[in-house]
């Protein structure tokens, strides 16, 4: 198990390999469909400091507010594939080092990870309550009114957020490996 704290260096991510279990501590920013579209089309600067050497988390949390203070109730990953058109560009323009999500991403993102030094990390889908407990504090929220709770940028402090490396910074993807192995078996089953 590898401990990483934000900001993360290029050297640190280049050292990760498929299957490594990583605990992320520090700051992660949630972003989904509306967020990625905005980051690419309008390139807002309010995220610059948070994302340089930083981590984006594909997540639309359940959030509660008590006495003006936000906290996460449930916060598992959402399907990352929807951000495939945007992710490589976001990695490049903000200097991201890691993206956390579920389900994996495609060739464009894998290439972006290799070129700019980033990794894709899988969290366990559906584990909303468990992952919310790794979020120790919600520091800020951006675009809440405009995007709504699931789509807003939530800036949070995490402690030992458990993830596994499934796309490394050298062009390898566990998702591609599973897809091709299962494809062979799928074809064998069809022929039966």
């Amino acid at each position: 198990m590898i401990e990483l704290t934000t900001p993360i260096s290029e050297e640190q991510v280049r050292g990760l390999k498929l299957g490594d279990i990583v605990h992320i501590s520090g700051i992660v920013v949630t972003a989904r469909d509306a967020g990625h579209k905005l980051m690419v089309e309008e390139r807002p600067t309010f995220l610059d400091e948070l994302l340089r050497g930083g981590v984006i988390y594909h997540c639309g949390p359940v959030v509660r507010k008590d006495d003006g203070k936000w906290s996460f109730v449930a916060a598992g990953p959402t399907t990352s594939a929807r951000e495939e058109p945007y992710q490589a560009k976001v990695i490049e323009s903000y200097g991201l080092r890691a993206v956390i999500g579920k389900g994996g991403m495609g060739a464009k993102t894998l290439e972006g990870c290799k070129k700019f030094g980033a990794v894709y990390l899988s969290a366990i889908g559906g584990c909303g309550t468990q992952i919310a407990r790794a979020v120790t504090e919600v520091l800020a929220v951006h675009k809440l009114e405009e995007f709504g709770t699931p789509e807003a940028f939530w800036v949070c402090k995490v402690d030992k957020f458990p993830v596994v490396v499934t796309m490394d910074a050298h062009g390898n993807s566990l998702h591609d490996q599973i897809d091709s192995a299962s494809k062979k078996q799928f074809e064998a089953l069809l022929a039966r």
Partner: peptide, 11 residues
């Protein structure tokens, strides 16, 4: 989730 009565999944 069952013990805390919070959503199993955020979605």
């Amino acid at each position: 989730a069952r013990k805390a009565s919070t959503p199993i999944c955020q979605d």
